[in-house]
């Protein structure tokens, strides 16, 4: 009975359904790419170049005759890998840093925050371009760039929560009940500080996908012939003016749908939190 009720509430939320559906599609593409894609993702066939969508090449072919559909499917692996890896790494670093910096006031904390200020005062995109140029056009360079962006973000979110939580009476009450610094940080503050982080995680994955695609689009991200959505749009950009729309459009749509799915899920997470199911400290 409980499951019947919960499933009904799931379907009462179109955002959740669409978000989860799109996410499932992406996971299917990641796991089963070789079986779904009719062509190898990097196989160029110059004789078949610039074909509009047809029965053989469902979404057409690009300038050097690679099958766009196959490349989009395989690119899911690259794009989501980068997104997930960057966000996971950033969480692993940013959350503890934010917790410490928020809990312990003093010079080290102030220095860390100044450092974050500097990183964040650079234009995101330019910082990314410069770093990828310096580190080399590898997937991991892109991940590091995204981490530079997300670590300060997560650390700030956690710190802001910690700063307000540490002044709450329930922390003083815990101290009276004998809790030490460690217990206060990890048992009292951290669980209460995670809510906004969880909401931000999903948004960040979407942001990561957009940024990765953007970096690749201007040639500062993943290198050809790796299948990557931004790179594929880039290779179709010049053709667009000539009316050859399919090369750029379909990978572009893949980006939109992927980012949308994470945005929808984040919104649902936020709604879940806001309705007070978790009993927030606010």
């Amino acid at each position: 009975m409980a499951s019947a009720r919960s499933s009904r509430s799931v379907f009462a939320r179109p955002g959740l359904v669409i978000g989860l559906g799109l996410l499932a599609l992406q996971f299917i593409a990641i796991v089963f790419a070789p079986w779904i894609a009719p062509f190898p993702p990097t196989e160029a066939n110059p004789l078949d170049s610039l074909q509009p969508p047809n029965a053989v090449h469902w979404l057409g072919t690009d300038e050097i005759g690679m099958d766009i559909f196959s490349r989009i499917v395989f690119a899911t692996r690259v794009n989501l890998l980068i997104g997930f890896a960057a966000v996971a790494l950033s969480l692993g670093v940013g959350v503890p840093v934010g917790l410490l910096v928020g809990y312990y006031r003093g010079l080290p904390s102030a220095l860390v925050m100044r450092f974050f200020d500097f990183i964040q005062s650079f234009p995101v995109f330019v910082l990314g371009m410069a770093l990828v140029a310096v580190l080399g056009q590898e997937i991991w360079s892109v991940v590091i760039v995204l981490c530079m962006l997300f670590v300060p973000m997560f650390a700030r979110i956690v710190r802001a929560e910690v700063l307000s939580l540490r002044e709450r009476p329930f922390i003083a009450a815990a101290r009276c009940s004998g809790a030490g610094d460690f217990a206060i940080m990890f048992r009292h503050i951290l669980p209460n500080a995670m809510t906004p982080v969880i909401v931000q995680v999903s948004v960040s994955i979407g942001m990561a996908i957009l940024l990765t695609a953007g970096l690749s689009f201007i040639g500062a991200g993943v290198r050809l012939p790796s299948p990557e959505w931004g790179l594929m749009v880039s290779s179709g950009a010049q053709q667009m003016i000539l009316g050859i729309w399919w090369i750029a459009l379909f990978p572009g749509l893949a980006i939109v749908l992927s980012v949308l799915s994470f945005a929808l899920l984040s919104d649902e997470a936020k709604r879940y939190v806001d309705t007070g199911r978790g009993g927030r400290a606010r």
Binding site: P169, S177, G178, G279, A281
Partner: peptide, 27 residues
């Protein structure tokens, strides 16, 4: 020991009453 002013904000919102009452017992 101390009884805090505002009852709600002085209790960790994520803890069950039993855990809240058990915490000082460690002392």
């Amino acid at each position: 020991q101390m009884v805090f002013q505002e009852p709600y904000v002085a209790l960790n919102p994520r803890w069950r009453v039993a855990d809240l009452l058990a915490e000082p017992l460690a002392l």
